[in-house]
């Protein structure tokens, strides 16, 4: 309470400009060029009107300039060609395939395990290779667009960097079932591992 009273007192000292020279140095807001404190009230009233008109016109000048400024609104469907979406934008999970229709997914299922709300379903199948070994390969990598929270955990944890989020944001569908994507293309297969060589040699040719 005492503190409050003190603040109030200071405030009144600041307001009571006739007794204290301290405010004389502060230019009175909205009015420049004359000493507003020692003025006849009538002149103060009249000059107040003119300063008000002046500052209002100043404000209108600002909006007038704004009126003629070039508009930067992006008009979406027309500007598809020039549209720039930030690289970090995560919209759709994809599995990059190279020109031989090969991907890097080993069907390990880590993405499926790490997904917080069960968006990803990795279906694997076991095949027998030519030399008689049994091998687990990817059958279907199912991702539900409608359930994904775009947390990026699957991409971070993927040991073979097989999946990434792309920038293709136009994912709206009329049917919910169309939101369930199969990420691996039909007929695709696992990319053969490069023979283990030191890094320098790999780049040489």
């Amino acid at each position: 309470m005492l503190k409050f009273h003190f603040i109030r007192k200071i405030f009144f000292i600041l307001l009571d400009t006739n007794n204290f020279k301290i405010t004389q140095n502060i230019p009175p807001s909205g009015f420049r060029g004359a000493d507003i404190n020692n003025m006849n009230p009538f002149i103060k009233y009249i000059s107040g009107i003119f300063t008000a008109v002046k500052s209002l016109l100043g404000g209108m000048l600002v909006t007038w300039r704004e009126l003629w400024r070039k508009k930067v609104t992006m008009q979406y469907p027309e500007n598809r060609d020039t549209l720039v979406i930030s690289d970090r934008w995560r919209s759709e999970l994809t599995m990059p395939h190279d020109e031989n229709n090969e991907h890097a997914c080993t069907a390990c299922g880590i993405c499926m395990i790490n997904c917080p709300n069960g968006t990803i379903n990795v279906i694997s199948k076991t095949i027998e290779t030519e030399d008689g070994k049994k091998k687990k390969i990817l059958d279907k990598h199912i991702w539900d667009y409608g359930m994904c929270t775009f947390c990026n955990l699957c991409v971070i944890t993927c040991p073979s960097d097989a999946i990434i989020f792309n920038n293709d944001f136009e994912g709206a569908m009329f049917d919910r079932s169309k939101l369930v994507h199969q990420l691996n293309k039909p007929g695709s297969k696992l990319r053969e591992k490069k023979p283990l060589t030191p890094k320098g040699e790999q780049k040489a040719p």
Binding site: T63, E66, L67, R69, K71, V72, T73, Q75
Partner: peptide, 9 residues
């Protein structure tokens, strides 16, 4: 006109 004043279309 409102839109133009607010730098919209």
């Amino acid at each position: 006109i409102t839109a133009f004043f607010q730098s919209r279309l």
